[in-house]
Write a protein that binds this DNA or RNA. Structure first.
Length: 274
DNA sequence: AGCTGTACCTGCAGGC
DNA sequence: TGCCTGCAGGTACAGC
């Protein structure tokens, strides 16, 4: 579900709502999200701690707690975090409730139960540390760096390159297809037969698409909701994603769907020639 | 190196 | 109405 823009919106709101607050206790409805830790141990490591910072790296949410503990959350396809200022009953898909100060609660919901929680103690290396640069978070992410990373993967198709979080952190299926459309590049093209000009267009397209996604508060075509349960707006601005059969906004040709890198992929064949 | 298929889960839309 | 199939925003892993 959420890609970089959606996670960024959630993180900004979490930062606003949670910074400085105490986690009093927590309840589990299911605990498949826990990675390498049992529910009781998890509870012991979290409860009684203060939330000091909330950050993001790619699609990971990082919640820093007092005592050098970090909770790393990945929402995968259908995970949601929802804030309630007053007590709220768990729904069918609620997996965890964090009870904060006063009456506040943070709920984790996940229909497909793919989401993950990993806990790190002092000095342990976060999984998200091993990702490529984050186009929004990292000031050093530049056109020059983008070109350099592309050179390391000459035989990859450009779509699988963009989806691989070890290259660039944060793009998923939606923003990849939208960026490739904006740059006029077919997703099956090999990295090493893109021209330098095309690579530069793509750099701009990636940065701009992600920024617009954030400004529109993310894409909700079905599952994504922000911390308050509200939908984003970017689904109204998508140019190719899930628009199969509809006219291309640029050339009035027809948007097509095909499978590239094992994923449903949307293109305008005339704007993005092979 | 890079691709494909499979697995993890549940819901939903479409065809019959 | 009901059953079946395929699809879904992500990632990890086995195998070619």
């Amino acid at each position: 579900m959420p890609e970089l823009p959606e996670v960024e919106c959630i993180v900004r709101d979490l930062r606003e709502c949670l910074t400085g607050k105490l986690i009093r206790r927590m309840d589990f409805m299911f605990f498949q999200m826990l990675r390498g830790v049992k529910p009781d141990d998890f509870r012991r490591k979290i409860c009684g701690k203060i939330i000091s910072q909330v950050k993001r790296r790619g699609k990971y949410i990082l919640i820093f707690l007092s005592g050098d503990t970090v909770l790393e959350i990945h929402l995968r396809m259908t995970g949601r975090l929802l804030y309630h200022s007053v007590p709220f009953s768990p729904g069918k898909y609620t997996g965890v409730i964090f009870y904060l100060q006063n009456e506040e609660q943070l709920h984790f919901e996940d229909i497909r139960k793919f989401g993950t929680f990993t806990i790190y103690e002092k000095g342990e290396q976060l999984r998200s540390f091993f990702l490529g640069p984050d186009p929004v978070e990292d000031e050093f992410f530049s056109e020059e760096l983008f070109l350099k990373i592309l050179e390391k993967r000459p035989h990859s198709t450009i779509k699988s390159f963009l989806l691989d979080q070890k290259n660039i952190a944060g793009l998923g299926n939606i923003y990849t297809d939208e960026s490739l459309f904006m740059a006029g590049i077919h997703p099956s093209r090999k990295v090493n037969n893109l021209t330098t000009e095309e690579k530069k267009y793509l750099f701009e397209a990636v940065c701009q698409t992600l920024k617009e996604g954030i400004c529109s508060r993310g894409t909700s075509f079905s599952d994504y909701r922000d911390l308050w349960g509200n939908e984003g707006e970017f689904q109204k601005k998508l140019k190719v994603y899930r628009r199969v059969g509809e006219p291309c906004v640029r050339c009035r040709g027809t948007v097509e769907r095909k499978v590239v890198a094992g994923r449903g992929t949307y293109i305008c064949p005339s704007c993005q020639p092979l």
